Amino acid sequence: MMNRKHPSGVFMMEMIAVVFFFILCAGICIKTFVKADLISREAADLNQGVLIAQSVAEVWKAEGPEGLEIRFRSYGQEDGLDGYAMGFDKSGNSCEKEKAVYDVRADIAGPGHAEVTVSKNGKQVYTLTVTRHETQQ
């Protein structure tokens, strides 16, 4: 019989190189999907923050601080400042402070001026500056 040599060493090296290449590609794909998910979550938080800030601003413009207390269960003035704190759940509905996902602060900066700040987990999501025009009667 003939003595044949098996080129298994070269084949094994090729297989290791191919597996390494696929692992590298899979890692890049996973990293890309994780980054896209993070960007998507941040965009959803920004969108919800904008909607909440607009709602708070519209109520303040139409009804003043009393409207914030009545409609959004405002915690009232805090820290001796002319500001009102409110809590909103993940759907953008007002809720108690303990259940809040979004913390909202409406700082009254003087007659007819306010700044609405929406935060999530202590991180500021959106800030809206509002001007209220008083009608002459």
Rank of each mutant, 00 (worst) to 15 (best):
H133A: 12
V50Y: 11
Q136H: 09
K99T: 05
D103M: 13
M86W: 00
V50Q: 13
G92V: 02
V130S: 09
V59D: 03
I23R: 01
S94Y: 06
A62P: 03
H6Q: 10
V104Q: 02
P111L: 11
D45N: 12
Q124L: 07
L24N: 02
V101P: 04
S8C: 12
E96Y: 05
H133L: 12
D89C: 08
T117Q: 06
V118A: 02
N3F: 09
F88V: 06
V50I: 15
E66F: 04
M2Y: 11
G92N: 04
N93T: 07
Y126L: 06
S55C: 06
L81A: 11
K35M: 14
G27N: 00
E66W: 03
G9S: 12
P7V: 00
R4Q: 14
E69D: 08
L128K: 04
L24I: 01
A109L: 15
G67I: 02
F21R: 05
G49N: 09
D103W: 13
G64P: 00
L24E: 00
I16D: 00
I70V: 13
L128S: 03
H6W: 11
G9F: 15
V19Q: 05
A100Y: 01
A106G: 07
G83F: 02
G92Q: 04
F88A: 06
A44G: 07
V19Y: 01
E58P: 07
E134T: 10
D107T: 15
I30H: 02
L24Q: 02
A36E: 12
T135N: 09
G110K: 01
K90C: 06
Q77R: 14
E69L: 03
L81M: 12
G112D: 03
T131C: 03
E134A: 11
K123Q: 13
F11E: 11
A43Y: 07
E115R: 15
V10W: 14
A114V: 14
K31V: 09
Y102G: 11
Y126Q: 08
I108Y: 04
A43P: 04
V101C: 07
A53F: 01
E63Q: 14
G110C: 13
E58G: 08
D82H: 12
M2S: 13
T117I: 14
T127G: 03
G122D: 09
E14T: 09
R132Q: 13
M2P: 10
T127P: 02
V118M: 02
L24W: 02
N121R: 12
P65C: 06
A100H: 00
M15V: 05
V104H: 01
I16R: 00
E14F: 15
G92D: 04
R41D: 13
G110A: 12
Q54D: 13
L46S: 10
R41Q: 14
F22T: 10
G92L: 01
M15H: 01
G9R: 10
M12P: 03
C25G: 09
V130T: 10
N47P: 02
P65W: 00
F11W: 10
R41Y: 12
M13C: 07
K31R: 11
A17P: 07
F22L: 15
I30R: 00
N47Y: 10
A114E: 09
Q136C: 07
S119M: 10
E115S: 12
L24R: 00
G49D: 08
F22W: 10
G76Q: 08
